[in-house]
Simulated scan of single mutants.
Amino acid sequence: MTASPARFATVDTPPGPFTVVVGPDDVVLASGWTADVSELLPVVHRALRPTWVEAAEHLPALDKVAEFVAGDVTAIDGVPVRQRSGPFLEDAWEVLRTVPAGEPDTYAAFAARCGRPAAVRAAANACARNAAALFVPCHRVLGSDGGLGGFRWGTPVKRWLLDHEAAHAPVPA
């Protein structure tokens, strides 16, 4: 358990309110499209889950969310995130951060990117268990048929994110 309180703040985004929970060091513990912080706390690993949270007027991570919404879809790339689980999930969450904006993977391609091409279900599970939506961009993984697949915050939010990133992604060199 964290001895210091975590902080949270919410900002409006085109697909809806977006809330971020950070530890005392401003590292993102959880985030998602909700105005209710109590929806985020259960997804924080028990070893990282704060004993209490306090509202904050400003969090640095929300500056990056504003930049992302304004069109800099790479602004979220460097935001520090802390998640805990087994080795595969922790590795998969790091690998998710390498999927470029505007170039989504399928679950099969994501599994291969993780070095385990046969582990498609495990790759999908990594997306489903991701607590730090947007900063760990699980929305960039699609079904094998190219369909949206699932998303904790709803497929309309996932569609908006993918369309936004496609419209603003840097052109590959």
Rank of each mutant, 00 (worst) to 15 (best):
K158Q: 12
G146F: 08
L162Y: 09
A30G: 10
A166R: 15
V27P: 03
I76V: 15
D91T: 13
W52G: 09
G149T: 08
D72K: 02
W160E: 05
N130V: 00
V141Q: 00
H45Q: 07
W93K: 06
C127H: 00
E103K: 14
H168C: 01
P117Y: 01
L148W: 06
V157A: 15
E67V: 04
E54L: 14
S31P: 07
R7P: 08
F88Q: 08
A101M: 03
G149P: 06
A122M: 10
V171C: 07
W93Y: 06
D163G: 10
P5C: 13
R152A: 15
Q83K: 04
A128P: 01
G71N: 05
V141L: 04
W160M: 05
A92N: 03
G146E: 07
L48W: 08
A131D: 02
A56R: 12
L62W: 10
G147Q: 11
L89Q: 11
A75P: 02
V20P: 12
V95A: 12
D72N: 11
V95F: 02
F88G: 05
D105V: 09
G115V: 02
R140F: 00
A109V: 09
A112I: 04
L40G: 06
A92T: 04
P80Q: 05
S85M: 03
L41H: 08
Q83M: 13
V99M: 07
V21K: 09
E90Y: 03
G102H: 07
L161W: 10
A101F: 00
A132H: 01
A3W: 14
V95T: 15
P15H: 14
V43Y: 04
L161T: 05
I76M: 01
A92S: 07
P156V: 11
F110K: 00
G32T: 01
P42N: 06
R159L: 09
A6N: 12
A56C: 12
P42T: 05
E57V: 09
L29H: 10
E165P: 12
N130S: 02
K64V: 11
G115Y: 03
L40S: 03
A66G: 01
P87Y: 08
F18Y: 15
A75I: 03
